[in-house]
Amino acid sequence: MKITTLLAISLGAILTNNFIFAQFLGICPFLGVSKKSDTAIGMGLAVTFVMGLASAITYAVNLLLVALGLEFMQTVAFILVIASLVQFIEMFLKKSMPSLYTALGVYLPLITTNCAVLGVALLNVQNEYNFIESVVYGVTGGLGFLLAIYLFATVRERTEFADYPESFEGFPIALITSGLLALAFMGFSGLQVWPM
């Protein structure tokens, strides 16, 4: 395995194939938890952590499923693994890092239904990544999510006070904003720093 492959995966996950703006994974928390930039960062970090860990564990689970010939149970097995992982992290944080736990609050259990987490597990299998590639893809995908949600939250803090048509209040203006951000991220498409 070459280091350039890993770099290419990371670059793709953060910029060119950003989970939010290019693949539409994790839109719900993206729109829901982006009213303030500091909670957005908390959410982004939590998602990054869970995505990295989930990639590692689902890789192992998938090996087990393939060995048993139960590939069709993938979706069920993955969602169970992710749900229990999130539950476990919640218990762990509550006990050992209560300050982080209170900061994340309700967002932590919500990660279970974040499609970016299940999405990264499924994409890892689909792309036939090995263990290290899977973990790198998970972590950098999460960093891409963090970048997107932070940028969006800072823009959104300003649109609060902007003057736009009444019908666009709430989600429509947020969607238009993210559309424009997606347009900006399109500028990264085709970016290739080194030959694959």
Partner: peptide, 18 residues
């Protein structure tokens, strides 16, 4: 493209709210 999705849904929800 993804951009179009965001813009169309935004416009649709705005129209519904109106």
């Amino acid at each position: 493209l993804p951009v179009g999705g965001f813009l169309c849904l935004g416009a649709l929800i705005a129209a519904m709210q109106w």
